[in-house]
Amino acid sequence: MTEYLEIEDEEIIYHVYNLNWLLPENIQQRSMETLNQLSPDKVDLVIPKYNQNCWHNAVSVLKQIGYPRNKKALPKLARLLQDRNWPGSLEAIEIFRDLGKKISVSYIERECEEALKEKDYCWLEHLEYASDSLNIGKEDFNKLASFE
């Protein structure tokens, strides 16, 4: 049985903010090593909503954690596809590519629905780029309106 590091949410958030690429590399590395040991029920805390300087390293942590342990963080990972210029966005596409269409499509489709609801056409363009990169086509979506 795999043993995971059991730490409070506040300490996880502390380590997440130490993923900031502007901090010394040894601090970033130490926090990545700690976060790599999180239990599956805590991995969704790895990607902070507002601190873009942490996103690239956070995505690296989720890649190292791997599927299915990183499953709870996949909605936040998909949210990074909102703009392919954001740190970690292109790496997020790679994670979804490794997961395959069967798993990835539902997360991409959910983001398309949100972007349509918001009428955010730039977001949709970035999702189209991600879909093309993942070889996801109209026929792969459950709701065709999400793709068109």
Rank of each mutant, 00 (worst) to 15 (best):
R30T: 14
P48R: 03
N36Y: 11
L74T: 09
N36I: 03
Q28H: 03
A145V: 14
R97T: 10
Y107N: 07
G137D: 04
I7R: 00
E114T: 11
N53V: 01
D98I: 12
M1K: 08
D9W: 00
K101G: 06
A92Y: 10
D41F: 05
N85A: 08
H56A: 13
Y4V: 01
E33Q: 11
E94W: 07
E6F: 01
E128Q: 12
I108S: 04
K42F: 08
K63N: 14
E6L: 09
W123T: 07
Y17G: 04
D41S: 13
I12M: 08
G66S: 09
I136E: 04
S60V: 07
G137K: 11
I27A: 02
H15Y: 11
L35E: 03
Q64G: 02
C122P: 00
E128T: 11
K102F: 03
K72Q: 11
R84W: 11
W86H: 08
Y129H: 11
N51K: 11
C112S: 06
H15E: 12
A145K: 14
S31P: 08
N85D: 14
W21Q: 13
W123K: 14
I12Y: 05
E10V: 12
I95T: 02
Q29S: 12
V43F: 03
E25S: 09
I12V: 15
S146Y: 02
R84K: 12
W55T: 02
L23G: 02
L5Y: 07
A115W: 08
I103G: 00
G66M: 09
I47K: 07
N70C: 13
D140Q: 03
A115F: 06
R30F: 07
N57S: 10
W21L: 11
E111G: 01
L35D: 05
L45P: 06
Q64S: 14
W21Y: 13
A92R: 09
Q82S: 15
A130Y: 06
E111T: 03
S131Q: 11
Q52K: 12
K101H: 08
A78F: 10
V59Q: 00
W21M: 09
N57H: 05
E3Q: 15
I93K: 05
P68I: 06
S89F: 04
K72W: 01
L124F: 07
L99W: 07
K42M: 10
N57I: 00
Q37N: 13
A58G: 15
I13M: 12
L62P: 08
L134P: 02
Y4M: 02
V16F: 04
M32H: 00
R69T: 14
I7D: 00
E125P: 00
L74V: 10
Y4K: 01
K101C: 06
S146P: 03
T34V: 15
